[in-house]
């Protein structure tokens, strides 16, 4: 049983992913946030096994989120989940040691299985 955190300012995106997880791994606990600041402040309480993080968000974007984690020495595993298909974004994200993979939306079920196993 794993704890998963979803961070995406679009509620529908979180709905899609959480529904998929619910169907594949009914026992997993999913915490979804549309507010990245709230998500960040909840990390140490939840202690997630994996974070699915969007990049393009208002207030605090994915990069700021990653930087904050780095500065607090948080090493929770992060999977970037973004509608951007930019190679530049992909390379940049992989410079963070706790970023495990970079996924372009829409996320394939097989890919989701792979990253949450």
């Amino acid at each position: 049983m794993k704890k998963i955190v979803l961070v995406d300012d679009m509620e529908i995106s979180n709905f899609i992913i959480s529904t998929m997880i619910e169907n594949i791994y009914p026992g997993y606990v999913v915490h979804d946030f549309t507010n990245p600041v709230q998500a960040f402040s909840s990390l140490n309480i939840i202690e997630p096994d994996a974070i699915l993080l969007d990049l393009n968000m208002p207030e605090m974007d994915g990069w700021a989120f990653l930087d904050s984690m780095q500065s607090r020495n948080m090493s929770y595993q992060v999977h970037i989940l973004t509608s951007s298909t930019s190679e530049l974004d992909r390379r940049r994200s992989l410079t963070y040691s706790n970023v495990i993979s970079y996924q372009s939306k829409p996320l394939d079920e097989k890919e989701l299985v792979k990253i949450l196993q």
């Binding site: 529908i12 995106s13 529904t19 169907n23 393009n56 298909t85 939306k105 996320l107 079920e109």
Partner: peptide
């Protein structure tokens, strides 16, 4: 144009995600 393409792609990926969810579950 690159920025715009990303902005356009975001709701599109939602639609695509919803569609595939509907098919399966």
């Amino acid at each position: 144009s690159v920025l715009n393409a990303h902005d356009v792609r975001e709701p599109l990926t939602r639609i695509m995600g919803l569609m595939s969810l509907m098919e399966h579950y």
